[in-house]
Amino acid sequence: MTALGRIMATSVAGTVPKESLRDAYGETLVELGSADPRLVVLDADLAGSTRTQLFGKKFPERFFDLGVMEPTLMTVAAGLALAPRTVFASTFAVFAAGQAYNQVRQAICYNRANVKIVATHGGLLVGPDGGTHQMIEDIGLMRGLPRMNVIVPADAPSTRSAVRAAAEIDGPVYLRLTRENLPRVTDGSFRFGVANRLRDGHDLTIVAVGALVARGLETATELERVGISTRVLDLASVKPVDVPALVRAARETGALLVLEEHSVETGVGALVAATVAEGYPVPVRRVGVPDVFGESGEAWAVLDHFGLSRQRILDEAWELLAQRGKVH
């Protein structure tokens, strides 16, 4: 193994084209609506931002913008779903998972209503809006709900697949999208309960969701320069989670680094750590937002500020590798 000391992150060329996950969602909704005349879409005065407006323009009779009432967005969605029919309901993550938590819990999950909540503006990357709108607890809240499925796609192509997969299953789904455009990092596939292995390796596994998947791949490239072989798993299907893939990663690579734009207390890092602890205990490090609220700033600067910079990720990877005796 390499004997290099701490390595410095190099600047990554910004030439990779980025795409909007929200556009991918809105366009897929229109496709689904064309195929299924019973599909209904609801929003709560954010249809332009969430892109449900694309569906609303095409199918105005099946689109309801209810105004600023997130709790009732969820109960009306549940009532429509009990008809029965498939219902998509969208708003920002802070409102979907926060403002309407108990309606999601009871009207949707407890009732077993076939509602797909697509929450945009999840995580720190709503930057300038500040801590009030930077929802970093939603994955924890939603994955804790019985019957709920949770998806966090990493790019636009996999968002399209994920939205289709959500429409196909019978049951509640929480699908979290980031506002920022993101580079393509997957082959565009999504399957419930399957971790997407984007890169194979044997020294370390990086598990990431959403915007952090690209940073995980960049980190793997940096580590490759010094001879470290890194596996990268896109854990878009947060729930159901791919337990075998995580346990296999623990057994085959000996250490896991988890990256997420979410509180480390309740997010994907906590989930991976618990899964690995039960299945094949090896060192796990969680890189996410510490137990604090965010604040205003340019989106990517906020991400760096709250501990998700490329250098911090690389440093955490390095310490894990040192712990395993793979670097000195």
Binding site: V40, E61, R62, F64, P71, T72, M74, T75, V76, A77, A78, G79, L80, A81, L82, A83, R85, N102, Q103, Q106, A107, Y110, N111
Partner: peptide
């Protein structure tokens, strides 16, 4: 509809009525 948390059943009823009209 499963109910018990007040203020939710009426929302589900509204959704059902909207669905029936659709």
């Amino acid at each position: 509809a499963s109910t018990g948390c007040l203020g939710q059943g009426i929302g589900m009823a509204v959704g059902m009525a909207l669905g029936a009209r659709l």
